[in-house]
Every structure is written in structure tokens, then in C-alpha cells.
């Protein structure tokens, strides 16, 4: 009995840990590790475990207007509000827990790429799959590549249909140009 209790005590902490503890991007790790976004005990908020709305708030508290980090806004051409059908969250292009290389060998410094789809059973790993909510609507999962293999800069418009913007937009519009030169991420990629 004592032995089984001991085993249970030893196993219990591991059962409480998340099933998948993925890597954290260096910038976030260097700031305050997991505690930058998560607070398991004693948080004033309920963001210990983040839902979609609070995840978005977590990103934008630092990356939104007047935050302390690089400013960015989700693509929102129809001015939807978080929670409304069709609203694009940060997580549809970015994964804060993923700093692994993408399938093309890029460094993935922008937290884009490899993603598990936990809705699939068993969970499916889509290398470089992003904007997956839209892809699900379209019934297609495309292997989107966000970064140049050589210098790690973002590939928004490759001309081969695999650039991030090409999922929905004409690949022939300013082909091989960085879309964000005109369509600033801080404005949700809207036209200048």
C-alpha cells in the first residue's frame, strides 16, 4: 500500500503537466519564460489556461497598440470582433510555442509553421501549415511557407501559391515582393 502511494505521489506531478510542452521562442523565454503569458497559481485573470479570447488579449497586451513589443494586428478586413465567426486570431498564423525549423529549413523566427491540429484524431502534424482555419473552410490544408530558407525573412508572396498571403490573394500582385512593405502588419496588413 505504502509503495503504491509513493508511486502515485511520484506520478501525480507528471499527470498535472501539460501533455505537450513545446519549445518557447527565445524572445519570450528571455523575458519571463512561461510566466510571461501563463500564471498557474494566483493570477488576477483566468489566463493560466488561455481560451481564444484571452490568448488574443495576451498577445495584444504587448504587441497591440501602445504595447511594449513590436506592434502587430491580426488581418481583419471586415472589422470583426474577437469571438465573431471569421475573426482571424494571432494563432492562425503564429504559434508562440513553436521555434523549431520549418520543413524548408527556415529558422522560423517569426513563430510560424509547424502546427498540430488537435481537432484531428489522432492529432495531425502539418509542417508549415498556417491560416488553418481558413484552410478548413476551404477544405484544403496547404503547406504554407512563411520564411526564406536563406535569411529567415518572411515569404508572404512567393509566386508559387505557398506564400502566406497567396492563400487568399492573387500571387501575381507584386510577385516576390514583401507584402508588408506596403501592407503593414501593425495595421492588420491593410492597404496604405
Amino acid at each position: 500500500m505504502k509503495t503504491s502511494r509513493m508511486i502515485l505521489l511520484l506520478v501525480l506531478p507528471f499527470m498535472l503537466l501539460p501533455l505537450r510542452a513545446e519549445a518557447l521562442i527565445a524572445a519570450h523565454q528571455n523575458y519571463n519564460g512561461c510566466d510571461t503569458c501563463h500564471s498557474l497559481h494566483g493570477s488576477a485573470s483566468d489566463t493560466g489556461l488561455l481560451d481564444e479570447l484571452s490568448t488574443e488579449a495576451t498577445c495584444l497586451a504587448c504587441h497591440g497598440p501602445l504595447g511594449i513589443a513590436t506592434e502587430a494586428a491580426a488581418h481583419n478586413p471586415n472589422n470583426l470582433l474577437p469571438g465573431e465567426v471569421g475573426y482571424i486570431t494571432c494563432l492562425e498564423c503564429h504559434n508562440p510555442h513553436d521555434n523549431r525549423t520549418n520543413s524548408k529549413g527556415g529558422t522560423n523566427i517569426r513563430l510560424i509553421g509547424i502546427e498540430y491540429d488537435y481537432n484531428d484524431n489522432p492529432a495531425t502534424w502539418y509542417p508549415d501549415a498556417a491560416i488553418r482555419e481558413e484552410n478548413k473552410v476551404l477544405g484544403v490544408v496547404k503547406g504554407v511557407v512563411f520564411e526564406s530558407d536563406s535569411d529567415g525573412t518572411a515569404d508572404f508572396n512567393r509566386g508559387d501559391g505557398l506564400g502566406a498571403c497567396e492563400i487568399c490573394h492573387d500571387p501575381n500582385h507584386r510577385q516576390n515582393r514583401d507584402c508588408t512593405r506596403c501592407h503593414d502588419h501593425a495595421t492588420g496588413f491593410m492597404p496604405p
Partner: peptide
């Protein structure tokens, strides 16, 4: 944690601080 992402703030002149937490 009392607040996480402190932003704008003001006072009421009666010893109270009103602080926005964006998170």
C-alpha cells in the same frame, strides 16, 4: 497578481487610483 499589463491611469483626488489593465 493584481495587475499584469498596466496602461492608462488617473486619480480621483480622494486617494483612489484608477488603473487600466489591457490584459
Amino acid at each position: 497578481s493584481i495587475f499584469s499589463a498596466p496602461q492608462g491611469l488617473t486619480v480621483d483626488g480622494k486617494g483612489h487610483l484608477f488603473l487600466v489593465d489591457s490584459l
